[in-house]
Each structure stands twice: as C-alpha cells, then as structure tokens.
Design a protein around this nucleic acid. Structure first.
Lengths: 122, 122
DNA sequence: TTGACATATTCCACTATCGGTATATGTTGT
DNA sequence: ACAACATATACCGATAGTGGAATATGTCAA
C-alpha cells in the first residue's frame, strides 16, 4: 500500500501541484473545463482526470450546462486540512521557537544525521 | 513523473498519514526515536524513513544525545500549507456557500458525472 | 441521423513510494 | 577492542499515481 488513496484523502488530493492550481483557478467562481484547460496549459484529459480526483474528495462540484460542465469549488472540504495545520499554528506564532533554538544550542545540533551541514538552524 | 517529489514538497510530506501522526507526536517537545517507534506501533526502519522525509522538508529537526536522537517539530515549516488553505478560508466562513447552493439548485446539479448519485449536494 | 463539439474514461508505460527485511553506522560501556 | 544498543540506510517486491494517446459518452445543431 503506497499512501492513503489519493481519491479518498483530501490531504493527498491536494498534494498534487496541478490540483492545487486547479482549485486556485476555481476561486473566482464557476469555470467550464475548456477554460481550465487553457489556463493550466495542460492536455484536456489530464485536467479532466485531476478534476475527477477533486470531485471524489468533494473538493469540487460541477453542473452541466449544455455540453459544457461548470466546475466550482467546494471550499468547506478544505476544513480538515485547515483544522489540522491550525493545531500547530500556535507553535510558530508564540515564538516558542526561541526557546527551541535555545535548547538547540545547548548541545551541538546535528540537523542532518548523515551530512553534518549547518550547526545553527533557522 | 508521479507527483512532486515527496522529499521536496511539504504538501506531499504531509500527505502520508503516518507522517502526520509523527508530527502530532512531536507536538509535546523533543522525543527520541525509540519512543516514537513505541507510540506509532511501527517497525523502527519505517519510522526512521518517515523521519528522514520530514527532515528533508525541514518539518522536523534532531539532535544527538548519546546514542539517542531527539527529534523535535519545526512548526514554521508548516506555514506554506497554512497560508495556502487560509486563502480559501474566507469562502466557507462568509457563508458564500449559501449563494453557491442557490446557483446549484437553479439547474439540476450533477455532482458525479458518471454515476449520478445524489442530486442535492451538501 | 449525422457531424461537430465538450468532456470523461480507458489503456499503457514509467516512476516513485511504501512496507519488510537485512545490514550499516555510530555510540557507550566494559 | 568488543559487545550491546540506537538509529539510519540499502535492497527488494508490490502497487498506485501520473502523463500521454486513443477512444467513449453525451449534447447540440443542421
């Protein structure tokens, strides 16, 4: 098993740069596939496939208008991600890292176990 | 090319459930690998490998103490993710989705192009 | 009904990632 | 110097994800 299935996990769906770009492109409102293809400079099948993934995790929804398909963002589906990162937000807002750095300097820090590059991080 | 390399993209690094769990386990402060192995109930090599990935994207850092290695979270590395999701936050906070639903109902919505399941989303 | 158009799906080959096992590296204590 | 310990890395087999090209589905217009 390699990773939680892309099609079932929002985190995975968003891990793909193209799909993030797609979501960004949908921030303005409904957009037909053809326009997405243009903006993304990607072959149409790829776009459709990416949209398919986003649909499966409910990050986007679409409706048919004539032969076109208008996609729109379903922002609330991003909440799990936001919630998850937010739990860590305090840790960089509260400047706890300063204490962290202190601890770091106490003993000589080895950031990269193999290659011992910088000794003073951040 | 399948996806942006796990080792170079924070989004990808975090896409793995085990790695998210690892990060969560480090929220309390520095933790030696052995303890992580215990908590995760995963073979030690897996844990080390996951830690390796997290290290490469600078989500965690570590220092050596005797033969142990103490890992700690580098929370600021999560900022890109937080920043990205936050750009969408307004869209679910502002109840714009209500308007969205309205648009949805105007024409019969087809959420799943192939399998036409529910017609009324959310 | 036929053809143009818009989009989705299938098939294929390639690569990256993951889990598992074995082994290497490095450190402490004797 | 050697053994025990802690952790990292290398190797392997399996598999899922991606891009690309071809094709299927569905809709409109004549």
């Amino acid at each position: 098993m390699a990773r939680a299935a892309t099609t079932s996990d929002v985190f995975n769906a968003v891990a793909e740069p193209c799909r993030r770009e797609l979501l960004a492109a949908l921030r303005g409102g409904e957009v037909p596939v053809a326009e997405l293809v243009q903006r993304m400079r990607l072959p149409q099948p790829q776009v459709s496939k990416h949209l398919g993934v986003l649909r499966q995790v409910d990050l986007v929804r679409c409706r048919s208008v004539g032969r076109q398909r208008l996609y729109r963002l379903n922002a609330p589906a991003l909440r799990p991600i936001h919630a998850w990162v937010s739990e860590f937000e305090a840790m960089w807002n509260a400047r706890l890292d300063r204490l962290d750095d202190y601890v770091t300097q106490l003993s000589n820090t080895t950031t990269e176990p193999g290659t011992d590059t910088r000794r003073n991080d951040r």
